[in-house]
Write a protein that binds this DNA or RNA. Structure first.
Lengths: 210, 210, 210, 210
DNA sequence: TATGAATGAGAGTTCATTCAT
DNA sequence: AATGAATGAACTCTCATTCAT
């Protein structure tokens, strides 16, 4: 039994896998899970129908891979930006800004996540919750609890408030138009939320627009 | 066919239609649009599978009917409660309370609406927006603009703020558990939002929890 | 809820089902279970591809139905003939004659049974054994045990000998040519077996041929 | 490519071929021809899926090779034992004993042969008959005709009786349980058959069991 | 010689929809 | 108006086979 396994094969495999995942997220975003067509994904990636099954066990497995990959990407994207400042109030703004930027830059990923979050498939929902737990923790600890300990936020329950922020974020960020623009601006939402969080609500700016 | 029978026919027809719609909303809520099974809907309503096509042109037409019907029901439910008080701040609370109550009492309807709102089907989304326009107007005029004219709310753009309130409401209210309970309370959301809206943010109550 | 279910529907259903089963046994006989094509069966029966699924849950379920139906038919066919005489020796001859006649007249049924009996599918084997139990009992009780009680057969274990007869029968009867003719004659096998069973082996007839 | 390497290549090739055949007979026995998976065979033999096509043109060709190889093995096994005695009656016993021993010792081979013998694939059946012709001849000449010339067997047609013996043997020997044990003993079958063959049927032994 | 990524024909199955009754 | 048998397009998934390395 001789093994010729070399870097060449590994490289091809990883590139093919990447193409398939990229094609899949686009298809899932456009058609939803049920409407998505596995053969179309394979062909959009430049391969024959069957190829996708060399990389993923099933349509469901493909979606689950995408959810987990996206959650990781999403977390990384947001964490990196939130941690740029140490002030909790500033972090709230960064959180919404980064979140909305993610929704804009990774339009398909965002749509797929929201489809799953609000869709009827309970397994996907479960996977979503698991995969997004770290982000809940980020918001709860590195933003809310931080703000409380810094004395700038009211004494709220961090977990509870984290849920609320996440939901507001998801609810709004997910409603983007076709270019990835949300209907409202990140700063406006951040402002609204901060007014609810701060011990000393800030002087109102931008009186004429939210 | 004699005339005195016509009314009876109309009644039977309308009862059948009602049963079908009721069965459909449950099926769509549980399975999503693509996963829903026309046959199962008919059976659940107590009819054979062909019957549904005597009342609706297609599965899509059935869903569109449901969206429009639900939007009407939803608007009526919320309008009735919001109009119980004339004070804009009080109306914000009533709006969230009524909204969450609707999500609880009309669980299936709520799930189907959210599925469509966040789902991939653009036609359904269009129909949703059209159908919910009156509710946007209710919030914009009878709550936000009212509050501004009453002097209690900041000078925000009513349309914009109405969008934001609707999205916060939908984002949160849609994430209910299986008994229809949302993760956060209507009052908490209303409090958060009011703090962002009021000229004079209220003294903070419930310091320990949100 | 009005029911128009009438004899017409029942009749159509039972005729269609019959056609499908008839087409199926032919297809299974020619192609084997794995090689058989569900769509081809439906079309051979004069229906569209999908029709078969209005009558059978799956390809497997269809095969199981056929096994059970055939076993019943087979038993009925053989029982009727075996019971024509009360003498055990005569019944041995009738058994082999009836069995070979069945293999000839129900060629496809016989091939399918033997395919399953000697094939790799354990579920089908199980179903076969269950379905053919009554025939084992027929041979054990109404032939072997009868012959012993009549004093013409040696004191053999009825169950054991029934197995042996069944296997000899199946082994031989199943090897028919394309017109349904077995390679050896029923009478010859019966003769061979009777010589092994009888207390007083018969005078040898047909000396020149087996 | 230097010459002294050729022998080594030949050896490696032949070892690889052997591994593939060994893995194949197991897979075919467990899954049947249609259910067998070429990929799984290669893997079980310790090679990648493509390797098998360096040695066999196709799945069918692989099966045909196995049939022919097994028939040779089978014949050798039985011939060797049958020829140990010169007495025809004794040879009948040896034939059944050796046959049942083969079924036990070469369980997978036996299953595959029987699958093909009773299966729907006519090409495989043809190959089987061709490959087993020498064994038919062994039985016809070295057992039946011998017994007749020795005066111990009745004047039967050797070819015909050989068919019958082969079929009884295959029919019974093929129905082994998972450890390779047939339901009835070789001696019992031999006894039954001998009683049908002998000029002077033997005194009955084992009256209580078969 | 061995590899394994890629192929694509073909399978079983589902189900919205039609229509004669 | 209600029925339910029939339809057939469309889908996911399997796997024998090819071939460049």
């Amino acid at each position: 039994m001789v093994r010729y396994k070399d870097n060449e094969h590994e490289k091809i495999k990883s590139e093919t896998r990447r193409s398939l995942l990229d094609a899949a997220i686009v298809e899932f975003a456009r058609e939803g899970y049920e409407g998505a067509n596995i053969n179309r994904i394979s062909q959009a990636a430049g391969f024959a129908k069957g190829t996708i099954y060399n990389y993923f066990d099933s349509k469901r497995a493909l979606m689950i891979t995408l959810i987990e990959e996206t959650a990781g990407l999403h977390l990384e994207f947001i964490t990196e930006q939130v941690h740029r400042h140490d002030d909790a109030s500033r972090r709230v703004e960064l959180f919404f800004n980064a979140g909305f930027a993610f929704a804009s830059n990774f339009l398909a990923h965002g749509l797929v996540m929201v489809n799953n979050l609000y869709g009827p498939d309970t397994e996907f929902k479960q996977v979503m919750y698991q995969a997004y737990l770290p982000m809940f923790e980020l918001v709860g600890k590195d933003i809310i609890a931080l703000g409380i300990s810094q004395g700038t936020f009211r004494q709220v329950d961090p977990t509870h408030m984290a849920s609320m922020l996440m939901m507001i974020y998801l609810g709004i960020a997910s409603q983007v138009n076709e270019e990835g623009k949300p209907w409202v601006e990140a700063d406006q939402v951040a402002g609204l939320v901060l007014n609810g969080l701060l011990n000393q609500p800030r002087a109102q700016k931008n009186k004429s627009h939210v």
